[in-house]
């Protein structure tokens, strides 16, 4: 059977783009797949230089590729993963896709006309928009999962493991650049009684509201995390002890001045805050500085509780001795 008749309808209906270029990169043929998407007519563009027809195509790079196809007589490839598209063409995924142009895979093949021996390069262009869209969605999901993995489900602040991990990063940075760094540890006063009196749902509402309120008092760069049940921690980069105490006092005052509403009742709340800073911690033990910061802030917090709650105490070395007295 003679199949010459097949070539034309196949090129007409092929669901891939075909662009045939001569050695001067002038258009010898473009199939309807490309013509329709680029809104051009074959007879009007035949003989025109490729880059005059597609001025946005990456000229230097593509020229080098096409040269390699001609001189080595071996194929070259371009993948959407490395280069999203060669030619600005629309795609047929208007709703599901946010990217404007068709993502493309391209095969560049050396061809020789059998009678004249003239050499051509054939570009075969495939629509890879679906793959591109799926991958973008995957990346987005991964990002969201990563976020979820870093945040505390109830309050939306950083969870303990991520907060602690970031504390180490900040401690190293502070050490390297000799920047100040402070830490706040705070705890909701008499939270257990609140849970007992009003139920755990009330407790959850209080935790959420307090986290929201305190979050609004912090800077973008401060790292706010939930350390345990009703215990929270804030890493304050580039902040010396005095600045940290000020922040802590503001938190204390604002929380005490705010009543949380729960089922038409106003719940009075307060927090106790312990403060430590990088200087005192690093002088004790340079290696486990993050842990030392946490321990010192925790000791200060404990002292704030003992002093009657709803107040700020910053760490001082004698606190260690007081600890020993309390827990012989």
């Amino acid at each position: 059977m003679n199949i010459d008749w097949l070539i034309n309808p196949l090129l007409q209906q092929l669901n891939s783009g075909v662009i045939l270029l001569n050695r001067q990169f002038q258009i010898a043929y473009i199939n309807p797949y490309i013509c329709r998407r680029a809104d051009i007519k074959l007879e009007e563009v035949q003989g025109k230089e490729l880059f005059s027809l597609f001025p946005d195509a990456p000229k230097a790079w593509l020229t080098r590729k096409l040269d390699s196809v001609l001189s080595l007589q071996s194929p070259a490839f371009s993948s959407w993963e490395q280069r999203q598209y060669l030619f600005k063409l629309p795609h047929l995924r208007p709703v599901s896709s946010t990217n404007q142009y068709m993502a493309q895979n391209c095969n560049m093949l050396p061809l020789t006309e059998p009678t004249t021996g003239e050499q051509f390069v054939c570009l075969l262009i495939e629509d890879a928009t679906d793959a591109y869209v799926y991958q973008s969605q995957l990346q987005q999901s991964n990002f969201q999962l990563q976020q979820i993995n870093r945040l505390d489900g109830l309050t939306g602040v950083l969870n303990r493991s991520y907060w602690q991990q970031q504390l180490e990063v900040e401690v190293q940075r502070a050490g390297r650049y000799r920047h100040p760094l402070s830490l706040l540890f705070f705890d909701l006063d008499k939270f257990k009684r609140l849970n007992d009196d009003y139920g755990h749902q009330a407790g959850d509402v209080v935790l959420k509201e307090v986290a929201k309120l305190i979050g609004s008092l912090l800077r973008e760069t401060d790292l706010f995390g939930r350390y345990g049940g009703e215990e929270f921690a804030v890493t304050l980069p580039d902040t010396p002890l005095e600045g940290a105490i000020e922040v802590a006092k503001r938190i204390c005052q604002r929380v005490a001045a705010t009543a949380v509403e729960y089922q038409q009742q106003h719940l009075a709340i307060s927090v106790s805050v312990g403060v430590s800073d990088f200087n005192s911690a690093s002088s004790v033990n340079g290696a486990n500085c993050g842990d030392t910061l946490i321990q010192q802030a925790d000791l200060a917090l404990y002292q704030a509780k003992r002093n009657g709650r709803n107040q700020v105490i910053s760490y001082y070395p004698e606190l260690i001795d007081s600890l020993k007295k309390v827990k012989p």
């Binding site: 080595l72 071996s74 993963e81």
Partner: peptide, 21 residues
């Protein structure tokens, strides 16, 4: 102008297809 990934795939296809042809 060119990503390292693209550079590697480019050089690889040049080296291998030339030999395999």
């Amino acid at each position: 102008a060119n990503s390292e990934a693209e550079m590697l795939t480019d050089i690889s296809s040049i080296l291998t297809t030339t030999f395999l042809n």
